[in-house]
């Protein structure tokens, strides 16, 4: 199938490696250790409504080869375009991005977006095969559908014993509550 190997439907892949300055390694280890427990770090990244899954990994060596420099591996599975994605890093969560990449050699800072985009482009790798189980679904669609299904299952459970009028009220409430996702 022709086309951009980093894209599949709405889904996009980003794969980046950068070399970390020695003094940044312990700080990044600390940041990544506390990050999952620290709402100010995690929540804004989760609130980027177009990231399905993302990961950062400190690579100290590769199987069969020691490395002089620790490398920061970043992978993201997101919906939307590459340019929109990097723009969001620059304009929506610049402090977070700076906190993570400021220790990488050559990092120009998240703003202005132009040099940051050039930096990512220079350090990224094209996927040779990229797969998504639900390539046409955006994160917003998925979060909305998961929530809707929970409420729909509740209505299904109640429906056998409901009067037509009570069902109609509950049904309209369901549609109203989820109108943004329908």
């Amino acid at each position: 199938m022709a086309g951009d190997p980093n894209k599949l439907g709405r889904a996009s892949a980003l794969t980046v490696l950068s070399a970390v300055k020695p003094r940044g390694v312990p700080l990044l280890r600390l940041l990544f250790f506390v990050g999952p427990h620290l709402s100010p770090l995690l929540k804004p990244l989760q609130r980027l409504s177009f990231i399905h899954f993302a990961r950062w990994t400190l690579v100290r060596g590769l199987p069969g080869q020691d490395l002089r420099h620790v490398h920061l591996f970043f992978e993201s599975n997101f919906n939307g375009t590459w340019s929109q994605y990097i723009d969001a890093f620059s304009y929506v969560v610049p402090k977070h991005i700076s906190g993570i990449w400021r220790w990488s050699y050559g990092f120009p800072g998240p703003l202005p977006a132009g040099p940051f985009k050039a930096y990512i482009a220079e350090h990224e790798y094209e996927a040779d095969h990229f797969y998504s189980a639900y390539p046409e679904a955006s994160v917003t669609m998925i979060l909305g559908a998961l929530e809707l299904r929970r409420d729909l299952d509740r209505l299904r459970a109640r429906a056998p014993s409901m009067s037509a009028e009570a069902f109609d009220d509950a049904y309209r409430d369901l549609l109203t509550a989820h109108q943004n996702h329908l």
């Binding site: 999952p36 989760q46 899954f53 990994t57 591996f73 189980a133 639900y134 679904a137 669609m141």
Partner: peptide, 28 residues
Amino acid sequence: VPTSFFVANYPKATVHDVRQSLAAHEQL
């Protein structure tokens, strides 16, 4: 290589959950 920091936007949902929910959305 162990992950240092993993961000998942719907960490409790399995692939099956996601697909079923998207199908339920379409059906409704």
